[in-house]
Write a protein that binds this DNA or RNA. Sequence first.
DNA 1: TAAACTCGTTGAAACGTTCTCCGAATCAGG
DNA 2: CCTGATTCGGAGAACGTTTCAACGAGTTTA
Lengths: 347, 347
Amino acid sequence: MKRSPNQGFTPRLSIRSVASRARVSIATVSRTINHVSTVNAVLAARVWKAVDELNYFPNSQARALVSGKSKLLGLIISEITNPFFPELIQEFEKVAVERGYEILIGSTNYEPKTMELCARRMFERQVDGVAIMTFGIEQFLLDRFASDDVPVIFIDIPSKHPRSDILSVDYRAGIWEGVQHLAALGHRKVAFISGPLQHRSAGARKSAFLDCIRCAGIKPNQKWLIEGNHTLEGGRDAMQKILALPDLPTAIMCSNDMTAIGVQHALFDASLKIPEDFSLIGFDDIHLAEYTIPPLTTVQMSCKDLAQAAMTSLLSRLQPRKDKVEPEEPITTRLVVRRTTGPPKAS
Amino acid sequence: MKRSPNQGFTPRLSIRSVASRARVSIATVSRTINHVSTVNAVLAARVWKAVDELNYFPNSQARALVSGKSKLLGLIISEITNPFFPELIQEFEKVAVERGYEILIGSTNYEPKTMELCARRMFERQVDGVAIMTFGIEQFLLDRFASDDVPVIFIDIPSKHPRSDILSVDYRAGIWEGVQHLAALGHRKVAFISGPLQHRSAGARKSAFLDCIRCAGIKPNQKWLIEGNHTLEGGRDAMQKILALPDLPTAIMCSNDMTAIGVQHALFDASLKIPEDFSLIGFDDIHLAEYTIPPLTTVQMSCKDLAQAAMTSLLSRLQPRKDKVEPEEPITTRLVVRRTTGPPKAS
DNA sequence: TAAACTCGTTGAAACGTTCTCCGAATCAGG
DNA sequence: CCTGATTCGGAGAACGTTTCAACGAGTTTA
């Protein structure tokens, strides 16, 4: 940056330009654009006119520097190429922009190393808050955010120690509906393709499934519990493993929709039909699920609700108001029946 | 922000803390962490030690304020829920983070209004550069960026006035391969479902198609030129319109893969088979295209190439080096044959 | 031996805001 | 018309950094 008296030209458009054009002090301009009520209406009008004519807008860096608030929010997700997350991002962005925030996105790709890098990026940009929408998070990262007084929201299963920065999801409800649906159709041999199990919430989905299966009076078969990785490839590979088994299940539940789509692909490749040969249930209800062939029966977790709950909670922590932070309702899940489930093949 | 002498406590971790701990001036600290070569090795070591012990990192707001560089890059896309864009974002993010930049994402949802809002957001955060990866952009927005000396990169068709801030895509090459492929299979009746035609590059894809069709000696039929909107729904609706026609085409080309997936859905609903009843070709080659049922034959536009070319060009404009900005090669496109094309039904 | 140069370090100004404090202006009541 | 209350505008410090100008200690030259 040039330090010379005036570096020649370019008297950069600043609050000062507005002040002089409106013939008021810079303080008055500042108060006007920050909607402080005590400012005289006549002057305010002059200020707004000047702002408009100059097409001025405040320098957010300077604002951030002095206020200590960057108006930046971090959003850490697992994998941006999994359509569930873009849908989530879209909701986040909407709410954030409405409230004057921008979003910094970090994609971990399921690697703890990358997760750490993302967290560091968030730190360096001094985000005002972070939403961690991955399937799990390391404790030490949470601690680090906490030690910097950065509010953090993350997803987890409902717990009896309701720390309000946890957004709890009731995975069981939807999975239970799914299992019941399958049982009602006559399925007794149900496989489950999980997500990467080192992630808490992937594990939570799997335990919910096992729990439900037992409640339905079905004894789970270890052979039919496959670990996937929440990707298309993972779903395909897992299904191929299942097909290689001597004793086949009649229905497959998946930890997310991408896995289910991978399964559909594997079955198509093997010339097997859904739902005639296998029933299939996904999880998430991404928009695409309605468009698979055949349309996917899946457990819906409203990412709209999720994003809004996360944002509400995050923002309420940023602007401490008198209204108490209400204990968050758990996010609910429910079955959406489409066309990948049917009675088991009479074998 | 409290203005009282010391607001009690919290002597915020700053470059000053490091300076006093390393027993040097803040200027020396600054030069050290910015890798200015003239700094004495002994002092540098002391500084790095202090940095490490305090776990210090510089405040990016302050940096941005004084340097005039926000190290923020804008990325404006059409629609984050179209999987093509997340794939693009992923590449962008990778390159950007490597170079110390963060990305601000704006999704226009094809609305000029929203596009304007996005541009404004970018302005307010004083991004150092913007990549506009939508299917078109208003001239006045480009002008505004230009008047603020913000480098802009956007996509367009190859033109004889190669302004280096245009990333040109050779849509024709891939579409030509697609048309030839169909013609070779015996198709003479080919429909095209375009994107929203107010967008330049959607229009470009359509003209490329018309051009290729004529070159292949086929007379295009106006009835088979449907305007879609690059979404699943748009593809489905367009296909339903086509199915209502008295004279049916035998093959469908789509302006993007999402449209093609919508077409597959409409055909599935109508109990029509691909490729037996209709051949289908998409555009983009999103990752999902390999996983549709049947796997989608499509024109590949490497979003990796696209993102990297965009970033390279953008970054080279940010750090003007001696090495001349090479004239960008147009991004190429090519056909990927999978299983949605076959000979036309003998009617 | 003093002057002229280097080299490396430091103090201080500047970036564009916000916000506190204080002085000036306005107004109502006596 | 004067006093006290009230309201509003302006000067200036502070935020955390970068970088310029200046300075001090060595080193070389006259």
